[in-house]
């Protein structure tokens, strides 16, 4: 298979001056009875500045673990992760994370939720409000700025979460299946919008997803992972023009990229 020939070391060597560098990353958990579970084994890859990389693979392949380590939410067992030449740390202002659930605080209005990162950093109230309104406009939520999250649909809540993440202009975006809980139509629309916002802002992005369609549609490059132990099998470069439009899904280039990603995942399944 041509796809499988692209090993992880080749993936690592091809970028210089990367925004995100992951080398020999390993994460194990101690289980009951002295056994160990390897969530991630020897993951090595890098992401160029402004690049959009999708991590895809079956559940338990460690894709979320890599993202959480990069976000500074959990520690790695071995290996190095550098984001903008610095090690991960929770609360870094140059790094934004989006989770599967929007996690809006129900007692704060949409705007107040978007202001939360700035409020935690003790920023001036007027300035942070102005910026919140600006990003709400960017994600198309100006009309519901003063509403409470309970009044918003799931898709709108996720938009608000995106606005919250973008509110402090992070240079790196880490997204952990941010649209996994949404319906198909909303998901597709948000894919288009997020891809567009990402390329406008030029943010270096890692998206964790288990949807091949989503990965191909949004990413410049897809890293395909396998589980047990979690590892990177190879990569698929998505050579599609931006801005990405929904019509792209029917083009040969899109289908080829999807097929290659599926093959990479499928090969692993055959060996299971």
């Amino acid at each position: 298979m041509p796809a499988s020939s692209e090993t992880t070391s080749e993936v690592a060597s091809e970028t210089r001056g990367a925004a995100i560098e992951v080398e020999g990353l390993r994460k194990t958990y101690d289980l009951k009875g002295g056994e160990q579970f390897t969530a991630v084994e020897d993951a090595t890859f890098s992401v160029a500045p402004g690049e959009f990389v999708a991590l895809i693979g079956p559940s338990g392949c460690g894709k979320s673990t890599i993202l959480k380590i990069a976000a500074g939410l959990i520690d790695s067992t071995a290996g190095t992760v550098l984001i903008g030449a610095e090690p991960p740390k929770a609360g870094r202002r140059d790094l934004g994370i989006m989770l599967q659930r929007a996690v809006m605080l129900p007692w704060r209005t949409v705007t107040e939720n978007v202001e939360l990162p700035a409020a935690l950093a003790g920023e001036d109230a007027q300035r942070r409000r102005a910026r919140a309104l600006e990003v709400l406009d960017l994600v198309g939520l100006s009309r519901v700025a003063d509403a409470y999250p309970s009044e918003l649909s799931g898709g709108m809540q996720q938009r608000a979460a995106l606005a919250r993440t973008l509110s402090y202009r992070p240079r790196t975006l880490l997204m952990d299946e941010p649209f996994g809980a949404l319906d198909e139509l909303t998901r597709e629309r948000l894919n288009i919008e997020v891809a567009e916002i990402q390329s406008t802002l030029g943010a270096t992005t890692i998206l964790v997803t288990h949807s091949v369609q989503e990965a191909v549609f949004m990413a410049d490059r897809i890293l395909v992972m396998a589980s047990n132990p979690g590892r990177i099998l190879g990569e698929v470069v998505v050579d599609l023009p931006r801005p990405r439009r929904s019509e792209l899904a029917e083009t040969p280039a899109f289908l080829t990229a999807s097929k290659r990603a599926r093959q990479l995942i499928g090969i692993e399944h055959a060996h299971d």
Binding site: G91, R92, R93, L99, V103, L105, L120, A121
Partner: peptide, 17 residues
Amino acid sequence: SEDSRTLLRSLGATRWQ
């Protein structure tokens, strides 16, 4: 919820915050 804790932690919130 664990998710909201994760969110605040990722934003660098202190324990008091």
